[in-house]
Design a protein around this nucleic acid. Structure first.
Length: 1032
RNA sequence: GGGCCAUUAGCUCAGUUGGUUAGAGCGCAGUCCUGAUAAGACUGAGGUCUCUGGUUCGAGUCCAGAAUGGCCCA
């Protein structure tokens, strides 16, 4: 006996029980242990940042991450899976800052870094617990007992080992990086924070400035262009000194000017112009911007030339900086020169852009490219550094007017106005941000750019366009990775620097190495490598007698996650630590990773970059890149919008399988999609309930007939219906296998849905009577075995996708009959398709039978004749002779479905249209005509069926069991009485009536009154009671 | 400002190498079937395939541009 299954089901409640079963019996652990020694399939778990409660949009990647490993495990692979948690970084710090009401870094310092970091740790650990609960409830199997946690001492030590390797390969260097900086908070802002604070109505000065050409330009350096600009070669001087006209909205940056940039391919012009003061002068600017800048009437063209010819021309500096202001790697020349740059646009300004590498991203990168120095004339509080000027020590915005006055006095100001435009402000304190070049540590990824690109060509991306699109472009435009942060809660950068000679540096590879340094201080027994403890560790410099102290920076949290292939095993590179190295070696390349698309520049990149830098190879083979989940209105889910759907509301109502199935099948994985709970409900009703009803149907009848798959032998050849659904089943197995092998759970799920629809709405529908009949013949047995095989195989096929319902079905259908079968469906082998069971001709014939039946129902409906009314014949026209032969074989299915006596075929559609007394439907070359003539005999049969239906309804209304035998009573007029008597055998058989009696007794039975086709009838039913002693 | 992706029925999505009248599910209206019944079947309404050009005998599909939304980067 199978456990009884009600068609009414609460999936969510069942799932909790199933999860309990897995936990108690260690099914997950067994699923790994039982494949010990088999070839390994490796998953890398991209660690979620545990800086908040997980939302519904986080479940998508959890689910996709789970499906493939489950499938591979069933296929026989050894698939250990280590969970990971990303714990460091600015988001965590910001959360704690919010709790404490802090807005500046100095508040953190006053509060105490030790205490601050302790709060960060606590905050993260609390969220990890929430993530664990959710992951388990989703049915995602991953080892959360032994996770890697990026803030663990061992993990940090491995990161140190990696940096140590990179450092001694010469891949770590210090350089400047321009970051949005808040002068009041004294901190850099992330791009996300910058985005929070844009204002598009910020008033700013807008000034045009003259940069006079230098007298010291050398003709042999610049070739022909000087003459065009009015240089007298003979006298070696200007006929009239021209000026470049440039434009800026930040006058204070002019003190840090090191170059002017022009667009190489645009046309520039030398013009004789009338200045706003009415004086004549020679100016150089882009030809396209002459009218806009100077006014139509105010200029006369002297010469024109492409921008690239201006390259190298010297001009006079506006301000001579103090020598201490000049920093960076570039060359400080005696005079500034013109350079070319791609970013110079003809949309605004003059086409000549003033370059201050210290205060602009483009400027800095251009400086890097053209070997220009960085000049810092402003300090981190936004005040002008002293240079003997009136604006010494002033805040930049207050310095602006003073600088404008100065330029005006020196005739260098062409025009000064005020404009409003978009400018970023600090989202916390409202101060205007400045872009500021700060000393930062870099990893020289550009040194391995070719290897990064070559490695990518070996990776399979799903969807494919990411490979050479977003990810490939990112690699093509690779810049060095600025990987240090001036923060607190992060992996500390393991570089120590000598107090006496800052050029003496030492990159420490492990905590052991640190402990072995001479005169080491501050390294206790339970050493926490976080700040501030690590900042207290000092040792003696190996090159002098100075004290070595750690540099203040911590690492970009993306470094932590990119280091996981190494650090998750606490592996210290190139040091044989036995098991740690062995674990690393076994998992050196991931077969599969899966995250959302925003990780192309995040985890996907840092993983790929570190692997390439360290090992010269990619560390993942296949990657599914998921689109984002939006809310029902198409907006991004975010905490600040307050539109995040709590996953528990779905899990408690519709359940995990429904959510999983929705996430897996509702849209292509790479697309964005809108989420609403009603769609999960739809999945539940359309797919899960259909499957469950089929399962429930099977169990109800199998129990009535005491069907036991273990004790009986399946009949050799089943009916057409059986062979058809088995053929569909094996086709399904090969399709699912193909889809999952190609990392396409969506395609796999959609195929399953199609199959379940066939199974429920044709196989079971057409087989019902085979299960009802009372005798236990081979046909019935064949039906049981067929449906049993379908359901059991289905449970294995859907196990990776919908693990709970799969387990539920498997336990009841398999474990109860075969106690020696694997303890769980997830310990089974994945089904293998048997091509010999696939019969393509039968499949196409069956699908045609369905189509023809559908058309037949349509024809009946058009004629207004109920299906319950038997009809004499249908006439069918197929497109091909072979189709007709196929249908002839399956005629009984169509006859039953359409409730007709006879099926006939014709070959011409015209004949069909000319049939009398028929309802005709044609579609796509097929046609069916239903003969609408109802003879007396057919009418009687129809009435009998109505009687049967009434009695069936009454059985249920009276609360009888499906298998109960009954006694039926009736009281009717002569016509109905005649029908009932005439067809009593049929009525008795259909309704399990032992007797059919008239009239209806007054008491002790269930009675209803009905009106059938206009005839009144009173009917009654009561249970049949065995009366062994009574003889009739 | 740049790159990538998407846009097909009220909603969520299919639509293969360009080739009959563009489909499904849900929802809506109606009818039916019912010994799986909180299912199921049939019919109907609902489409300028976002827009504008182009290539072609033929475009939802290929090309160019625009709009809207999303992501990433400035």
């Amino acid at each position: 006996m199978f456990k009884p299954v009600s068609s009414k089901v609460n999936f969510a409640q069942n799932e909790v029980r199933v999860a309990q079963f897995w936990k108690e019996n260690h099914i997950f652990e067994q699923s790994i242990q039982q494949r010990e020694g088999a070839s390994q399939f490796t998953l890398y778990d991209g660690p979620p940042t545990a800086n908040g409660s997980p939302g519904i949009h986080h479940t998508l990647s959890r689910i996709f991450k789970d499906v493939i490993p489950r499938y591979k495990a069933m296929q026989g692979y050894h698939v250990p899976r280590k969970a990971g948690w990303d714990t460091h970084g600015l988001p965590v710090e910001l959360e704690v800052e919010r709790e404490l009401g802090f807005t500046t870094k100095s508040q953190i310092e006053e509060y105490g870094v030790a205490q601050f970091n302790a709060r960060c740790r606590k905050s993260v650990l609390q969220y990890i617990t929430e993530w664990e609960k959710l992951t388990e409830r989703l049915g995602c199997w991953i080892d959360m007992e032994h996770p890697y946690v990026t803030c663990d001492r061992d993990y940090i030590e491995s990161c140190w080992g990696i940096i140590n390797q990179l450092y001694y390969k010469g891949l770590v260097y210090q350089g400047y990086r321009v970051t949005p900086h808040c002068p009041r908070c004294g901190t850099s802002l992330s791009s996300h924070e910058v985005a929070l604070g844009y204002r598009d109505d910020a008033p700013n000065p807008s000034i045009h400035i003259r940069f006079r050409l230098s007298k010291r330009n050398q003709p042999h350096e610049i070739q022909g262009i000087l003459q065009k600009l009015g240089w007298d070669v003979g006298k070696a001087e200007w006929i009239e000194i021209p000026s470049f006209l440039a434009w800026t909205t930040t006058p204070w940056t002019l003190t840090a000017n090191v170059a002017l940039a022009v667009a190489p391919e645009e046309t520039y012009a030398l013009v004789q112009a009338r200045s706003p003061e009415g004086l004549s002068e020679r100016l150089i600017l882009a030809k396209a911007l002459l009218d806009k800048t100077l006014g139509q009437e105010n200029w006369r063209l002297l010469e024109e030339f492409p921008g690239k010819e201006l390259s190298g021309i010297r001009y006079e500096r506006l301000y001579e900086p103090e020598s201490s202001f000049v920093v960076g790697r570039g060359v400080w020349a005696q005079e500034n020169r013109v350079v070319t740059a791609d970013f110079v646009s003809m949309d605004e300004g003059t086409g000549i852009v003033h370059i201050a590498p210290a205060y602009g991203q483009d400027d800095y990168e251009l400086g890097h490219l053209r070997d220009l120095p960085v000049v810092h004339t402003v300090d981190l509080e936004g005040n002008m550094r002293p240079a003997g000027k009136p604006w010494d020590g002033k805040f930049i915005k207050e310095a602006d007017p003073l600088i404008i006055d100065d330029l005006k006095r020196r005739d260098l100001l062409y025009r000064s106005e005020e404009i409003t435009h978009t400018y970023p402000f600090c989202w916390r304190c409202g101060a205007p941000l400045l872009y500021y070049a700060k000393m930062t540590w870099y990893i020289k990824t550009t040194a391995k750019k070719d290897e990064l690109i070559a490695g990518n060509s070996k990776i399979n991306w799903y969807p494919e366009y990411i490979k050479y699109g977003r990810f490939g472009d990112w690699l093509e435009n690779n810049v060095d990775w600025a990987f240090s942060r001036e923060r607190y809660w992060g992996t500390p950068l393991n570089i120590w620097q000598c107090e006496s000679h800052p050029e003496h540096k030492d990159c420490i590879g492990s905590i052991t190495e640190l402990g072995a340094k001479p005169e080491v201080n501050g390294l206790g027994e339970d050493f926490d490598p976080h700040r501030p403890f690590v900042d207290q560790v000092t040792f003696r410099c190996s090159k002098c007698e100075g004290t070595m102290r750690r540099v203040p920076e911590v690492l970009d949290a993306w470094f932590d996650s990119g280091a996981m292939p190494v650090a998750q095993w606490h592996y210290l590179l190139f040091e044989d630590q036995g098991e740690n190295k062995a674990q690393f070696d076994r998992n050196r390349v991931a077969d599969y990773i899966c995250e959302a698309v925003d990780q192309t520049r995040g985890w996907f990149y840092t993983l790929h970059a570190l692997s390439t830098l360290l090992f010269d190879r990619p560390c993942f083979k296949n990657v599914i890149c998921l689109g984002h989940i939006l809310d029902a209105k198409g907006e991004k889910m975010s905490k600040t919008r307050g539109n995040v759907v709590n996953p528990w509301s779905i899990l408690d109502n519709q359940g995990a399988d429904a959510l999983r199935w929705y996430m897996l099948t509702a849209a292509p994985p790479g697309n964005v999609r809108r989420f609403s709970p009603t769609q999960v409900t739809e999945v539940m009703r359309r797919f899960l309930s259909t499957l469950w009803n089929t399962y429930s149907f099977f169990v109800i009848y199998a129990n009535i007939d005491k069907f036991n798959p273990a004790s009986e032998k399946p009949p050799v050849a089943g009916s057409d219906l059986d062979r058809w659904i088995i053929s569909e089943l094996h086709q399904l197995i090969s399709e699912i296998t193909l889809a999952l092998d190609n990392y396409d759970p969506t395609g796999a799920g959609r195929k399953v849905e199609e199959f379940v629809d066939y199974l429920s709405n044709w196989y079971v529908r057409r087989s019902r009577r085979r299960f009802w009949k009372s005798e236990n013949d081979t046909d019935k047995l064949s039906a049981y075995f067929t449906l049993y095989e379908c359901l059991v195989t289905l449970s294995k096929l859907i196990a990776p996708l919908a693990p709970f319902i799969a387990e539920e079905i498997y336990q009841n259908l398999v474990r109860s009959a075969y106690p020696d079968a694997p303890q769980s469906v997830h310990l089974c082998d994945f089904p293998i398709a048997d091509p010999s069971k696939v019969d393509d001709r039968l499949v196409s014939a069956s699908r045609l039978a369905m189509k023809i039946s559908s058309m037949g129902r349509s024809a009946r409906s058009k004629a207004g004749i109920k299906v319950r009314q038997p009809l004499s014949r249908v006439i069918i026209k197929t497109r091909l002779k072979a189709e007709q032969e196929g249908l002839e074989c399956l005629a009984s299915q169509v006859l039953e479905e359409l409730n007709v006596k006879r099926i006939e075929f014709i070959s011409e559609e015209e004949e069909l249209m000319n049939l009398p007394l028929s309802s005709i439907v044609t579609e796509g070359g097929y046609g069916i005509a239903v003969d609408t003539e109802i003879s007396e005999e057919l009418k009687e049969e129809g009435l009998a069926r109505e009687i049967v239906r009434c009695l069936q309804n009454m059985r249920r209304n009276a609360g009888f069991d499906i298998a109960d035998y009954i006694v039926s009573y009736y009281h009717a007029d002569s016509i109905l009485s005649h029908v009932i008597e005439h067809l009593s055998a049929y009525i008795k058989q259909e309704t399990l009536s032992r007797e059919l009696v008239t009239p209806v007794p007054k008491l002790g039975i269930y009675v209803e009154k009905h009106r059938i086709n206009g005839y009144e009838v009173v009917m009654g039913v009561r249970k049949w009671i065995e009366q062994p002693t009574v003889t009739s």
